[in-house]
Computed example of a mutant assay.
Amino acid sequence: MATVRPLGPTADHGRSLALPQRTSKEACRPTRWLSSLLGLCEPARVTSSHPQSNGTISVVICTLDRPGSLGRCLDAVLAGSRLPEQIVVIDQGDAETTAAVLRSRSSAGVPLVHVRQGRRGLSAGQNAGVRQAHGDVVCVTDDDCVPDLRWVEVAEREHARGPRPLLLGGRVLPLPAEGERTVPLSTRTSTEPATLSRRDPPWRVGSGPNFSVSREAYLAVGGNDERLGTGAPGLAGNDIDLFHRIKRSGVETRYEPDMVVLHERATPAQYRSRRWTYGFGMGASVVAWIRDGDGTAVRILASWGLMRLRRLARARQRDTVVNELHLLLGTLRGMWHGLRMGPRRPAGEGPEDARTGRTTTNG
Rank of each mutant, 00 (worst) to 15 (best):
Gly293Met: 06
Leu228Val: 07
Glu256Val: 12
Leu235Val: 07
Ala236Val: 06
Gly295Val: 12
Val251Gln: 02
Phe243Leu: 06
Ser285Leu: 08
Tyr278Phe: 14
Arg299Thr: 15
Gly293Phe: 05
Thr267Gln: 01
Gly231Gln: 04
Val260Asp: 01
Ser285Val: 05
Ile240Leu: 15
Thr230Asn: 09
Asp241Ser: 13
Arg227Pro: 06
Gly295Ser: 07
Asp292Asn: 13
Thr296Gln: 12
Leu228Met: 09
Pro257Phe: 02
His244Leu: 14
Arg265Phe: 09
Pro257Trp: 01
Gly229Asn: 03
Thr296Ile: 11
Gly231Met: 07
Gly283Ile: 03
Gly281Thr: 00
Lys247Trp: 04
Arg248Leu: 15
Ile290Trp: 04
Gly293Ala: 08
Asp258Met: 13
Thr296Leu: 14
Phe280Ala: 02
Val286Trp: 02
Gly231His: 05
Asp225Asn: 09
Tyr255Asn: 04
Ala236Ile: 07
Phe280Arg: 01
Glu226Lys: 03
Ile246Asn: 00
Trp289Gly: 04
Ser303Asn: 14
Thr253Pro: 02
Tyr255Met: 05
Arg265Gln: 15
Ile300Met: 12
Arg299Gly: 13
Trp276Gly: 05
Thr253Gly: 05
Ala236Met: 13
Asp225Ala: 06
Leu228Glu: 01
Trp289Glu: 09
Gly279Thr: 04
Ala269Glu: 13
Gly283Lys: 03
Val286Lys: 00
Gly234Trp: 00
Glu264Val: 13
Asn224Thr: 09
Asp258Glu: 15
Val286Asp: 01
Glu256Arg: 06
Gly279Leu: 01
Gly231Trp: 05
Trp289Cys: 09
Arg245Tyr: 08
Arg291Ile: 00
Val287Phe: 04
Gly281Phe: 01
Val261Met: 12
Val260Arg: 02
Gly229Thr: 02
Arg299Gln: 15
Ala284Gly: 10
Arg274Ser: 11
Ser285Met: 13
Gly231Val: 13
Arg275Tyr: 04
Asp294Thr: 05
Arg248Ala: 14
Tyr271Phe: 15
Gly283Thr: 05
Leu301Gln: 10
Arg248Trp: 09
Arg291Asp: 02
Ala288Thr: 15
Arg299Ser: 15
Ala302Met: 12
Phe280Thr: 01
Gly234Gln: 00
Gly279Lys: 00
Thr267Gly: 01
Thr267Ile: 10
Thr230Gly: 08
Leu262Trp: 11
Gly283Val: 02
Leu262Ser: 08
Arg248Phe: 06
Pro268Leu: 10
Phe243Gln: 01
Arg274Asp: 12
Val251Thr: 12
Leu301Thr: 04
Asn238Ser: 15
Gly295Trp: 07
Ala284Thr: 02
Thr296Val: 12
Gly237Met: 07
Gly229His: 02
Ala284Leu: 05
Glu256Ile: 06
Asp258Lys: 11
Val298Asp: 00
Ile246Cys: 00
Glu264Tyr: 11
Tyr255Ser: 03
Arg248Cys: 12
Gly250Asn: 04
Ile240Asp: 07
Val261Gly: 11
